[in-house]
Design a protein around this nucleic acid. Structure first.
Lengths: 162, 162
DNA sequence: CATAATAGTTATAATTTTGTAACCGTTATT
DNA sequence: AATAACGGTTACAAAATTATAACTATTATG
């Protein structure tokens, strides 16, 4: 198959594979330099800011983090009072982690900090380009959230072969 | 500022911050499970597959990797014969790293392997959605490559404050 | 009730990434 | 020629992620 008749799906995969390292290096670097959080615990906070409340297992599923890692990341967030534990009254094994008011507020500020450099670099684009980019990134975000959704029927083993 | 009158640029930053962990966890997981390469050395290979030939310093700039890390990652790629060293005849300090035929071939195969899971998940979308996504991801990719470009005038210190 | 399965924690190790400092050889500056 | 700057390597340490196994408590299944 030549590049010419590459399918749209192959293009998508190709593009995502290019996008990832670009994003990764810029964002994790900003997180390290501008916050007291590790990338991992910030991603947990971000996921909670979207979902509000998730069980430990669900957090690991959303971010593909091994369970012990989730425990330690949440531990950190709890000492920072950005999230809190809620016990499920129906099933006392389950512990829900919920973002706190302080967590919501702080995550908003952290996003500003972290995005600062990105925002500066985006200044080279004109308004129309920014708009296109806004729509494009929104679409990509929505699709990724959709396709990476947790399968309703369990099967969220972190070390699962894929 | 409420969510309602959020600027387009803020939306872009927000979206990128959401996209990153989703992409990260899926792609690095695939790399670990399906290849003998570490994410780092595969990103180096990917960058070289786009640029063909880069100096050690340039590789580090593109991916924000500390120089010693670049050395070890390239070392691995050289023993796998996926890249090779070229000495600059004008400035004998500079060592260019160039992707080999074998490297080009293998990177293509690796992309197929790594994208397999992604491709499967994208199956839930119809042709039109895939097309939109293809365009959106292409746009995002191009913009990111553009804005993360290396500044011509040096200033690519890995540990630089940002 | 006995057993198995689930949710989460603890402990520990291995891998990968990041960060520093010192060093060599080469080039640029004075 | 002396010195500084640059490109890359070496050596080493620290941080972050990933992976395993064993364990507690709770719930589900037979």
């Amino acid at each position: 198959m030549t590049d010419k008749n590459k399918t749209s799906m192959d293009m998508v995969v190709d593009n995502l594979l290019s996008i990832h390292p670009l994003l990764a290096k810029n964002i994790t670097k900003a997180i390290k330099h501008k916050t007291n959080h590790t990338p991992g615990s910030l991603f947990v906070l971000g996921t909670l800011s979207r979902h509000g409340k998730l069980s430990m297992t669900e957090i690991g599923c959303h971010l593909s983090l091994p369970k012990p890692h989730v425990t330690s990341l949440v531990e950190k967030l709890i000492t920072d009072e950005l999230v809190e534990r809620l016990h499920d009254t129906n099933d006392r094994r389950i512990i829900y982690i919920q973002i706190t008011e302080k967590g919501i507020k702080e995550f908003k500020e952290l996003k500003l900090e972290i995005g600062q450099d990105l925002r500066a670099k985006l200044q080279v684009l004109d308004a129309e380009q920014i708009n296109s980019l806004s729509e494009a990134s929104q679409l990509l975000r929505d699709v990724l959230i959709k396709i990476f959704q947790i399968q309703p029927t369990g099967s969220c083993n972190t070390s699962e072969k894929i």
